[in-house]
Amino acid sequence: MSGSTRRLSGAIQRLSALRPRKGVGSGLQRAQSFMILTTLLYRASHLTVGVLAVAQRRDGHPAQYLCLAAALALSLLVYGTALRRGWFEPRLVWADVLVTGCALPYVLYGWGGVRETPTIGWAMLLGGSASGLAAIVLARRQALTAIALLVVTHLLGYHLVGASRAVLGGHLNSLLSSAAITAIMWWYLRRQGRLLDEANARALAAEHQKARYAERLDHHRALHDTVLATLTTLAGGGIDANAPEVRERCGREAAYLRRLIQQTADEVHHPELGAALEDAVRSAESLRLRVTAQYHELPPVPPEVAAAFADAAREALNNVRRHAGTGHAYLTAAGSGDRGLLVTVVDRGPGFDPEDYVPGFGLRGSVHSRMAEVGGRAVVDTAPGEGVRVELRWPA
């Protein structure tokens, strides 16, 4: 592999390393995951207080257990859905505000026999986590409406049990500070997540530009060492342009130029695979076999797979030169399926009858075995008078 090709491979590897790994996601997704975890822990601390408060009451009314069970079930629904989908559902957040934050204290007061401030406190605590959740999930007006509704209902609820002004003031501060702190935290994390995504996008664009420049540089050097050198020599008049060896060299380099022109601007070739196949083609052309090669959206493959394809394709081209009785072969390489690869080598020779043919060492060892060793397979399709098609596929 040439130095520029190695640099291109390294650039693409660095570019791949900058992409978010599977299961990690973008910066914004990471911020969302962190907020889900933070608010979940906040709600879990309030539920823990509720479990302890209800468990310690020996004369607990069944309604108290039902209210605690309802709070637990709704919390599991809200946070379970968020963990599964990556963010909260606004309708479930509204249900949490109305049921857990607003209705629960009045159910305890009306049917649970709760008439004292300490016994209703655990239900009031849940309003703090409900207000924080509303502040980061709901639209601004809806969030303000939900928080105002929590404030009014909780102040009225504490008033029913005769809570002191200090308790009312402290709880009001808890509701509003929970919403404010959660909103500020979410604003900061979301901003940092977006900045991280923008930085990654700029880095990816820069690495992509470097990779494309390295690819162009590789082509320029190849043209300098081949086509330009030939044209310069011909222009100097030092050799006979009609000499067989000169015409043969011009034909090989014309085929190379043709392959470059056929590549579209959007095609991105994996450097190791593309270079390996092109080396196999040039090797065959140096032995006076004309090869029409086309490459389409080559996927990235492990180095050992690229080497196996190149070696198997080289042997298939050698077989065309030795046995097909034709001086022309066709090689096509393209992506297949989910990141798979298909390479075909075709000739228009006389072909043969597969039932009367015993594969030689080259076909057995250099084609079939090489592909099988890397988890691929080789198929030979031929018939008398139909030429030969060698199909190399990975994975098998």
Results as ranks from 00 to 15, higher is better:
Thr5Ile: 15
Ala17Ser: 09
Ser26Met: 05
Ser26Cys: 07
Gln29Ala: 15
Ala31Thr: 10
Ser33Gln: 12
Met35Ser: 11
Leu37Glu: 15
Leu41Cys: 15
Tyr42Val: 14
His46Cys: 10
His46Trp: 01
Thr48Cys: 04
Val51Pro: 00
Leu52Cys: 10
Gln64Phe: 02
Leu66Trp: 11
Ala69Val: 02
Ala69Ile: 01
Ala71Gln: 08
Leu72Thr: 01
Leu74Lys: 09
Leu74Gln: 09
Val78Tyr: 07
Thr81Met: 04
Arg84Ser: 08
Phe88Cys: 03
Pro90Thr: 01
Gly101Cys: 02
Ala103Asn: 06
Tyr106Pro: 03
Tyr109Trp: 06
Gly112Val: 00
Val114Tyr: 14
Arg115Ser: 11
Glu116Ala: 05
Leu125Gln: 08
Leu126Met: 13
Ala134Ile: 00
Val137Cys: 06
Ala139Ile: 11
Arg140Tyr: 07
Gln142Cys: 06
Ala146Lys: 06
Gly157Glu: 02
Tyr158Leu: 15
His159Arg: 12
Gly162Ile: 12
Gly162Ser: 08
Gly169Arg: 13
Leu172Met: 05
Ser174Asn: 13
Leu175Ala: 02
Ser177Trp: 10
Ser178Gly: 01
Ala179Gly: 06
Ala180Met: 10
Ile184Lys: 14
Trp186Ile: 00
Arg190Thr: 15
Asp197Glu: 12
Asp197Met: 08
Asp197Asn: 07
Ala203Asp: 14
Glu207Asp: 13
His208Trp: 14
Lys210Thr: 05
Ala211Trp: 04
Glu215Met: 11
Arg216His: 09
Leu217Trp: 06
Asp218Cys: 14
His220Phe: 15
Arg221Gln: 13
Arg221Lys: 15
Arg221Ala: 13
His224Gly: 10
Val227Thr: 14
Leu228Gln: 14
Thr230Tyr: 04
Gly238Gln: 14
Gly251Tyr: 04
Arg252Phe: 01
Glu253Pro: 01
Thr264Arg: 06
Ala265Asp: 08
Pro271Ser: 02
Glu272Ile: 10
Leu273Pro: 01
Gly274Tyr: 02
Ala275Cys: 05
Arg282Gln: 10
Arg282His: 10
Ser283Asp: 10
Glu285Gly: 06
Ser286Thr: 07
Arg288Ala: 12
Arg288Tyr: 11
Gln294Glu: 11
His296Thr: 10
Val301Gln: 00
Pro302Ile: 03
Ala307Tyr: 03
Ala312Ser: 12
Ala312Leu: 05
Arg314Thr: 13
Asn319Tyr: 03
Arg322Met: 09
Arg322Leu: 11
Gly325Ile: 02
Gly327Val: 05
Gly327Arg: 07
Gly327Glu: 09
His328Gly: 00
Thr344Ser: 11
Val345Leu: 01
Gly351Trp: 01
Phe352Tyr: 09
Phe352Thr: 02
Pro354Leu: 08
Asp356Val: 15
Gly360His: 04
Gly360Arg: 03
Ser366His: 07
His368Pro: 00
Arg370Asn: 03
Met371Arg: 01
Glu373Leu: 12
Val374Arg: 00
Gly376Leu: 00
Ala378His: 01
Glu386Met: 12
Trp394Asn: 00
